[in-house]
Design a binder for these strands. Structure first.
Lengths: 138, 138
DNA sequence: CTGTATCCCGTCCGATACTG
DNA sequence: CAGTATCGGACGGGATACAG
């Protein structure tokens, strides 16, 4: 998130230290409740470069949000899944998705991606009813 | 949040474009339901420099999260308060605060600030029970 | 009181090429 | 398949001094 010599003073700062980054929220979201391989994440986040993806994955792993499992196979197989901490972040990201869909619709390029479903959207349809519609992408 | 030529593809990206920044979540939080003067925010976020505060306030204003009201008095008085969009962000920041208090306690420096109350903490005490305790800071 | 003007610096993103 | 090496370049944070 930012430049800071010492530990953050407020919890929310610590949270943003972990999850703010060009691709981090999207990585967390697209892993979701599944286990995803490196290449799956890469193709989900189309324009990302392998270098960047690797670095963000490593950072998320260091912060305890995802877990990396490597299988000794040929070809190599590596799977990522969320830790409990990462899983508990999913609904919060859903709230942010709903908030943005309501308050920043003009700042999202692809209309079909302006909305999101998944479980939090149903949970919160009274607040962000637009969320309960068609598309899925965060 | 990051370098991007075009509009974000996903709502959550748009959200992070608005709220990720070294001080932005804290500014939103400390304004809360009040109206705060420039100097009030400045003294709330102790080590912030006037330059940085000014820039982050302007960015938040451009993104429609806060409103700046200038009174033609001597000395000059300027008040900031949240827009409806900014207000709806408060509970989400509260969730993040609770999440970090639970999952990143060791990454917050001041123990007395590890918890948060305010309305969302009571709302969510089943999930983040640590939140319903003493201290207030986000 | 409420900012702005400069300048510096670290960090992060990104492209490209290459490797176990 | 799952990354790493190297090198830029842009952006955002920060310090200090100054202004309306």
């Amino acid at each position: 998130m930012a430049v800071r010599d010492n530990l953050p003073q407020w919890p929310v700062e610590a949270a943003f230290d972990c999850i703010s980054g060009r691709w981090k929220p999207l990585i967390i979201w697209c892993i979701g409740y599944d286990k995803l391989r490196y290449s799956d994440i890469k193709t989900s986040l189309v324009p990302i470069s392998p270098h960047i993806l690797s670095r963000q994955l490593k950072s998320l792993e260091n912060d305890g949000l995802i877990i990396r499992i490597q299988y000794q196979e040929v070809p190599l197989r590596v799977e990522y899944h969320l830790t409990p901490a990462g899983l508990e972040l999913l609904p919060i990201l859903g709230y942010l998705c709903g908030w943005a869909s309501v308050h920043l619709p003009s700042r999202v390029s692809s209309p079909v991606r302006k909305n999101c479903r998944r479980f939090f959207c149903q949970q919160n349809s009274e607040n962000f009813s637009v969320c309960s519609s068609a598309e899925n992408i965060l």
